[in-house]
Nucleic acid binder design. Sequence first.
RNA 1: UGGGGUGUCGUCUAAUGGUAGGACACCAGGUUCUGGCCCUGGCAGUCGGGGUUCGAGUCCCUGCACCCCAGCCA
Length: 557
Amino acid sequence: MKPRHFIQRIIDEDNVTGKFDNRVHTRFPPEPNGYLHIGHAKAIYLNFSIADEFGGKCNLRFDDTNPTAEEEEFVRSIKEDVKWLGYDWEDRLCFASDYFQQMYDYAVELVKRGHAYVCDLTSEEIKNTRGTLTKPGQDSPFRNRSIEESMDLFERMKAGEFSDGSRTLRAKIDMGHPNMNMRDPVVYRILHADHHRTKDQWCIYPMYDWAHGLEDSIEGITHSLCSLEFEDHRPIYDWYLDTLETYHPQQIEFARLNLNYTIMSKRKLKKLVDNKHVSGWDDPRMPTLSGLRRRGFTPAAIRNFMEEIGVAKRDNVMEMTKLESTLREDLNKRCERRMGILNPLKIVITNYPEGKEEFLEAVNNPENEKAGRRKVPFGRELYIEHNDFMEDPPKKFFRLAPGREIRLRYAYFITCNDVVKDVDNNIVELKCTYDPDTKGGNAPDGRKVKATIHWVSAAHAIDAEVRKYDRLFQVPSPGSMENFMDALNPDSLNILENCKLEPELKQAEIGVPIQFERLGYFCKDIDSGDTPIFNRTVPLRDTWGKIEKQMQSGKNK
RNA sequence: UGGGGUGUCGUCUAAUGGUAGGACACCAGGUUCUGGCCCUGGCAGUCGGGGUUCGAGUCCCUGCACCCCAGCCA
């Protein structure tokens, strides 16, 4: 039985004590200021799966309290990504901006109770009087202004009488508090900016700490899950709700997801987009959900990954290989197999009649018999993968070589007789013979071959472009570098333009993952025109590649 | 050197006073019409030092390391 993580245990306990009347109601609260990445997927997964597990609900809530950063486009993409991941917020699409009036009313209440005041200090002055980590701050000279005066000023802030930054509403807590967040935090700031939803209705906007707890409270959230850096905001979350004597959800912090060889910062991802190091937010090399989707990741693979990595409070950096492993596991089960040649090498079957063609039966998915079979055309001229042939093979190479017999997958045994080269001594073609008795791939005399390679018929193949992706960064932790751009992998994208695919692939649909036998998982890209473009989602595990590397590093020979 | 957190195989994550387990990675082998999948085996960990206890990853004391916080961002 899968052990329960610390959040599940907290909820178990709450359900024993009846703390929230045995309700469980979570929320995923993104700010619509950028695209979602796989780090967000952990939060989405956590919130929705916990709600599901406990028979509760999970809201999708846009924390849109800063009009200068937020856009409708991000709202659209976030909804799309959450849906794609497989989650349904039903009728609970929420916006912080829908609560602006209530938040304002609560703020009025805070002033009236003597717990907040309008402060005329500039942002620079507030900064200078906040103190430091080790030294207490100083009280604002406006701290003890009368409730009436603060009320008057706050109303006029709302009415638009004052310029941006000229005044703030601040909570009256303790300028000497060891937790910086409790040193009279700003509750409202003046921002004469159009909001993507409320337009010019407001010119004062609530700060995160004020807004977030109220949003949770208004929506009746029970367990407010957030990442570790908000741990020392919990006292202010609690203080606001306690002071207001209103419904009080419980904030619980967990460690966000980090992945090696990539970055998870919206700011940095934006820089990659702005500086054109990637084609956009949905570039298949990006850790964004839109990028992973385009790359060919399945929602199930991402969900399984989140399930497997667990939830805890210690900082962590997951290995990309773990994500890839989960991906392959899902893809292996669901993908139909096809044959495609990325780096074609022509071969001629000299004893195969010219003009003849036949159709050989191939299994669509050995992991799923229901996927059925298909016919693959065969002819005298074929393409095989260039690196499936070696003129002078090392001992451990058991693919095609001069004089050697191997199997063409689902077709015939062939033997290589001649190597044709151009003036520069490049191998351009192979002359082979086939054994007609081995049709389908087995020899009646029971003889074996050491290798089976894939192929396509030259006469029937379709042309395609294939984009191979590698890790975006060359170092495990680009995010911790002084300049993360220096670590960009110059070979993260490798475009192959002369690929030959079996004709069945004409039917490929955009985004549907397919295994190209012996190569990896691919899916047709939205950039496709007359000639299709396929993204390599992830290569198959490559034992031969490992052996090759070992030989190169001199360990073997 | 203020406050808040966190330390278990290389990486994640279990064990809640009773054999330190699982996954990924790595290594070795088996199987195979994908050098894929699958199967078998191996490697490898409790931050340090004291203490309590028959017994400590877990409890106590004491060090150490790492992360977060000084936006009118979230």
